[in-house]
Amino acid sequence: MTALRHRLAERGIDRQLALLLPALLCVLVLFVYPFAYGVGLSFQPSSGGVLGAYRTFFEDPYQRDTIATTLGLSLPAALLNVAASVPIAYRMRGRFRGKRLMTTLLVVPITLGTVLTAEGLLNFLGPTGWFNRILPGDAVRLTNNYWGVFFSLIITGFPFAFLLILSYLSGIDPSLEKAAATLGAGWWQRFRRITLPLLAPGLATTFCLTFVLAFSVFPSAVLVGDPAGSTRVISIAAYHAGYEAYDYPLASAIAVVMGVIELVVVAVALGLRSLFYTGTTSSGKG
C-alpha cells in the first residue's frame, strides 16, 4: 500500500491533487459543458440531417463569404499590428525619459473599448467629421465601410501587439547586440541577424493573439462598418442566425466554423514559429 503510494507520488499523483478539484469543477461547468453543448447543438438542425446546419452555411454564398470577409479584415490587421509594433518597440526597448508616458498613451485605446473608439472614428472620419470637412468634396470615405473597421482593429489591436512585443524585446539580452556591434555588424545587420531571429517566436505568438481578437470582431464591424455588405463578418452571421432567425443549430455551426478557422491560422503560425530557434534569449551563464 505504502509502496503504491510512493510510486504514484513519484509521478506527481498524491493527495494535493485534490486541491485542483474546485477549479476543475468551475472549468467543467462554466466552459467545457457549454462548449460541448454548442458543438452538439450544431449537429442537431431542424432539417437536413446531422451536417444540415453546416450545409446551410456553406451552400449559401451570403453566409459562406463571411469567412473571406473576416479573414480579409483580420489577417491584414493582425499582420499590420505586428509589423508596426516591431520598429516602434525596437526603438523604445532601451530606457529613456518619458517612456512610461508613451507606453501609457499607447495603452489607452485598450482600456477605452471598441465602442468609444468606433464613436471617435465616426465623429472624426465620418461624412461630417473634421477630416472630411478639411478635405474638399466627398472623395475619401473612411467609415461605414471596410476601412472604418480596419482602422478600428488597428487602434484597438496595435497597443496589445506593441506591449507584447516590447516585453519580448526586453527579454533579449542587450549585450548580444553590443557583441554583434563589436563584431562589425551595423544596426540593420544587428536587427536582422540577431534581434529578429530571437524575436520571431514572440512575433508568431503575438500574431496569433491579435489575429484571434480581430477575427471575432463584432462591435466595430456593426458601428463603423457596413454590416450588411462589405463588413458582414462571420460573427454578424452567427448573431443573425442565433438572435434574429432563432436558428441555434446554425448559429452554433457558424461558431464552430469560426473556431476551426482560428485554429487553422494559429496552427500555421505556430508551425512557422517552430522553424525558428525557440530557446532562451539570454546569453550563456549570466
Binding site: 549585450s175 553590443k178 557583441a179
Partner: peptide
C-alpha cells in the same frame, strides 16, 4: 575593428 569578450560571453543563442 576591435574584438570584445563579454563578462556573460554574449554568445548568440540561436
Amino acid at each position: 575593428g576591435f574584438g570584445m569578450v563579454f563578462q556573460n560571453y554574449a554568445l548568440f543563442p540561436h
